[in-house]
Write a protein that binds this DNA or RNA. Structure first.
Lengths: 240, 240
DNA sequence: TAAAACTAGTGGTCTATACAACTATACTAA
DNA sequence: TTAGTATAGTTGTATAGACCACTAGTTTTA
């Protein structure tokens, strides 16, 4: 259960252990978990170590404490973030559709003036240019053009692009994606877009541009997408 | 400086003391604060007590730590709200345009099934139905249909609607607007929309629906808008 | 000169203990 | 019966010390 000689800190192992019990509903909401002293006996560690684990779970919102009474399981927070940066696949899964991707073009080229300005790099700097047709439930839904500076993602491959670009950036390259800016407008499909999206020319479409940035404000990708208006609506939640 | 016999916990006193030094810029951003061992000597408390204070300041974002190096003052987070509920006028002013409104229709009617469902009222309950043409810099930009339950806003007048609906609701009626949900899609202008917006039929437009809710989740207005695609883009900021 | 080893200092983890403050229950005395 | 009192169990606060892993210099060595 707990490995005292693991390089993973004990308090963290206990934290994960309890978190698992909570999210898997083995503890019910508002149910008291074992007291700190009990836990310290069960795991054979000092009470302060238990407290370090519980403190984290409290700040993360999994538990709450009541002095003199005990520690209890908190109700799962609903509070979905107003807007999260998500990739296409994640977005579609949330909508209950099966995402798929067909790569139309993948290659390296030079940044033109406009793209360089968006990506905050110099004109003619090398970039990846990726053109993808996005499918939901096997039907075309969007056409995406993505531009990525080569110096930020040196060894991008078609396979990575077909899987999850974001998780590659975050996990392999250890870069932290922090925010994105989207611009949404309406327009009409041109002939190329129309044929790929399997609609007739002049059909209404949503043009969505996205500039995705790292923590240091460095843009890592610029995306121009064309969505079929009949198959895609955009949702926003706002707070006063 | 620190009162060991105060009922206020020592770690909390130290926390406030350091926080004050940070927000008053006595410590600069990225400057190292004294080490935990130094602080424990200065305050005459144990290192664990210092750590409890520092831990809180780290989770609150005032400090960050680097193993083997020290503890440093974090940059003040800017954190602008991702998205705020704003009315048309406010929105336009932010974009640097002069807003204007022409009321096309203002009256009381019965809620049909769809509108009642959106507003969470009963079918045939009385509602205000407002149709407005929105102008930016004296040029038509959007056509808005707004539906408001009469029982929530009993004495709505054309003048109020021409001024600021939100400030009337919040200041006169003392109702708290808390959030809104928008759905954005692309489409083509029909003949009525086209003539009012002074575009040709079949031109691309953005359809934006908004359901605005009070703190108790009671919807207070439902709006269907049609925006000229050539004059309006929608912006969203997202966080990871 | 350059690489390797050392060293002092840092935050990270962990222990064993102590007392305070609070809660709930059971017991006792008016 | 009721009010007060113990008591056991809980989290909250605090101590003193220990060892680890990491960082950045300094010193030693090849």
């Amino acid at each position: 259960m707990i490995d005292k000689h693991s390089p993973i800190p004990i308090y963290y192992q206990i934290e994960e252990f309890l978190k698992e019990k909570i999210v898997s509903k083995q503890y019910e909401v508002d149910q008291a978990i074992p007291s700190e002293r009990e836990l310290s006996e069960v795991f054979g560690v000092s009470r302060m170590t238990i407290r370090q684990a519980l403190n984290d779970l409290v700040t993360e919102g999994y538990l709450y404490r009541e002095k003199g009474k005990g520690t209890f399981v908190a109700a799962q927070k609903i509070e979905q973030p107003l807007h999260e940066v998500t990739g296409f696949s994640e977005d579609m899964l949330k909508r209950g559709m099966v995402p798929a991707t067909r790569i139309i073009q993948f290659g390296e080229t030079d940044a033109d003036k406009q793209i360089a300005a968006y990506l905050k790099i110099n004109e003619h700097d090398p970039i990846y240019k990726i053109e993808r047709l996005r499918l939901a439930d096997e039907r075309p839904i969007a056409l995406e053009h993505t531009y990525v500076p080569v110096h930020l993602v040196p060894n991008l491959t078609e396979d990575i692009v077909k899987e999850s670009f974001y998780s590659y950036v975050e996990q392999h390259l250890q870069l932290e994606i922090s925010h994105a800016e989207q611009t949404i407008e309406a327009g009409l499909a041109n002939s190329k877009q129309a044929s790929l999206l399997e609609i007739s020319q002049g059909s209404p479409v949503l043009f969505i541009q996205q500039l995705t940035c790292l923590t240091n404000e460095q843009p890592i990708e610029w995306v121009r997408s064309t969505y079929r208006a009949d198959r895609y609506k955009f949702h926003v939640n706002m707070k006063r």
